[in-house]
Design a protein around this nucleic acid. Structure first.
Lengths: 352, 352
DNA sequence: CGGAAATGTGGCATCGATACCACATTCGGC
DNA sequence: GCCGAATGTGGTATCGATGCCACATTTCCG
């Protein structure tokens, strides 16, 4: 407010009034007890008589006391902030995941520090370092590199990997049941008479793509159909690329149905089919893994596998909190969230 | 759970190895200087010779030192965490907003603590209290209640309101240029010969809805068209409700075009039009404020007003950081982010 | 009814980094 | 060659809450 100190300080004046916030001391004085007692009365369970507790709480309320998390964290060497590292918040998959995580964390009294790493290993690692600096007790990450979860764990931070697994990490992990989901989806098409099914996929090194591919193969095997390897079209994680890849696939091969391995690729595939004025599902069926809202808004609505993304997020958070609270045995946990086939208008009988 | 007593600690053993992290002291020893010097060499500008600075940084690197933000924050009475309070991460509008905010914050060396308040005043207020406890220097909020920004400011926290303004708050605010955007959109329809345009809108008390409604009216006025008040259909912020409201509107009145005030309402409107098998835009034109991805995927693609949501997020963050750094005059800032009309296939000439 | 156990509260040191001041050195100018 | 300024570094107190121990008081039981 007024220039503090007697000599005119050259520092740009604080825009905001400093606002002295009440401390434990102030509450103690107000309630007529010691600071220790205040601390116990407000937070620690037990160790304070109901009378005192009530008095302290009233006093705290009265003077508007709010615990300083920084001080608390420093002293108790923990924090109630949880790091969440995802690739792209603008992708509804990640947004849903984050929403689920946040909901559960908040319910447990934790805060979510959200970082977008844009799928870039360098940004991911730097974010991890920041989280280390914040002394977060745990991190939920959709990993880009195995190095990141590794580094966090080496520093005593609990890690839950979401959606995918890189190599065999030592961290807990929550996955969609990719194999079953993809198999179910593929079988749905096979049952409709499709024998030449294209698969548009971006990666198969992570558990996610690998699982979906495995499910695709398994469905074929179960039905005594050979997989034509040429119909598995590898592309990059990008709608435009997916569109071009789809174009090439359709130019070079006959397919009666097309599966895209995720919501982004589906955009590209759909764009190409529309561009070709192909009647869906009369001339070609289209289906996608990972149900997102637009898929039920387009005409015809897309048949998809709903991987319960929000629930997946909740699972991640529940698992992490249980770990932090020490409620789990040291053994690594793997949670598979069931995937559900949602049949809509975009899939139909194979053209004769 | 178990009777807490001193005998036989019932507390589950810590799952994680404690992991002693190096402190400033350790770095000091390693580099052969004092802790004070380490602190200055690593963070404060000036006050350390290049030689020492290099030596200290090398030492820090070598032993894997990471500053403890809690300690730093406590001592320096600040924090590099910024609170972000939004209504619904699953709505692409908020997700984009958050993505823009996060990007800019991270670039400035800040972290984003994201809280979903679900549009609930109680949750919002509680979240604000948590942020107070974290001693965040600033908060970006899409306010539900004026009380929340108020309370934060009273406690010396800088606040930027995003997307809307409640009453005349004292906080900085970043808005879409709702009036211009809505006017442009409406004029586009009028130019196509539409004279009976329906407006589907959820609220007009906040600046957002009020602005869009004002733009709608202004466009009519500019073209010497009277607004038929019956064509302004008030609904609630919910796709299903919007659908029912649309149904009622179409049952009761003739309209040749329909504008929905945001992306959620657009879903309901579109669903109803499809249900009625109305040819868009031949029989009725449809347009929406707030362009989100699905709007260009549906057939026909929707004419919209793109409010540059990501950029809006970035603006919020830039404004807040400038405020925190004391670079701004005390005067309250209002930033209007331009809105851009995007004409697609869903709007066409008015039927005969 | 006495002593041991249980119970509740206060005192004090501490978490780790940094603000601030004191001081040692170097440097420049006359 | 001397003195005052400039520069860089070390020492120490401190931010605010809490863990731990000591101790006063009450309760319990033989």
């Amino acid at each position: 407010m007024s220039p503090r100190g007697q000599a005119a300080r050259a520092v740009p004046p604080p825009t905001q009034a400093p606002v002295r916030r009440p401390t434990v001391q102030d509450v103690a004085r107000e309630a007529g007890v010691s600071p220790s007692t205040v601390s116990r009365a407000l937070h620690t369970r037990g160790y304070a008589s109901p009378a005192v507790r009530a008095r302290v709480q009233a006093a705290a309320e009265r003077i508007g006391y709010v615990t300083d998390h920084n001080a608390r964290n420093l002293r108790s060497r923990t924090s109630t902030s949880i790091g969440v590292l995802i690739s792209d918040l603008r992708n509804p998959f990640y947004a849903d995941l984050a929403a689920g995580i946040e909901q559960e964390l908040r319910a447990g009294g934790y805060q979510m520090v959200l970082v977008n790493d844009n799928g870039d290993p360098a940004e991911e690692l730097q974010a991890a370092e920041t989280l280390l600096a914040m002394r977060v007790p745990g991190v939920i990450v959709t990993p880009v590199t195995a190095k990141c979860p590794q580094m966090l764990q080496d520093n005593g931070v609990h890690v839950v990997c979401a959606d995918r697994e890189l190599g065999r990490s030592k961290s807990d992990v929550v996955l969609s049941d990719n194999e079953s989901g993809a198999r179910e989806l593929t079988e749905h098409l096979i049952a409709l008479g499709h024998a030449r099914i294209g698969l548009l996929i971006d990666e198969t090194k992570w558990s996610t793509g690998a699982g979906r591919l495995a499910g695709f193969r398994a469905a074929h095997a179960d039905n005594d159909l050979a997989v034509d390897e040429d119909l598995i079209a590898y592309t990059s994680f990008d709608a435009d690329a997916a569109r071009l890849t789809t174009r090439k696939l359709l130019n070079d091969h006959e397919v009666t149905a097309l599966i895209s391995a995720n919501n982004v690729l589906a955009q590209g595939a759909l764009a190409e089919l529309k561009d070709r004025r192909l009647k869906i599902p009369r001339q070609i069926s289209l289906a996608a893994y990972d149900d997102v809202p637009w898929m039920s808004l387009v005409q015809p609505a897309l048949t998809t596998v709903d991987q319960s993304t929000v629930e997946m997020g909740r699972s991640c958070a529940r698992l992490l909190l249980a770990r932090i609270r020490g409620e789990l045995t040291p053994k690594r946990r793997l949670v598979k969230v069931p995937a559900r086939l949602v049949v809509r208008g975009s899939t139909g009988p194979a053209p004769r």
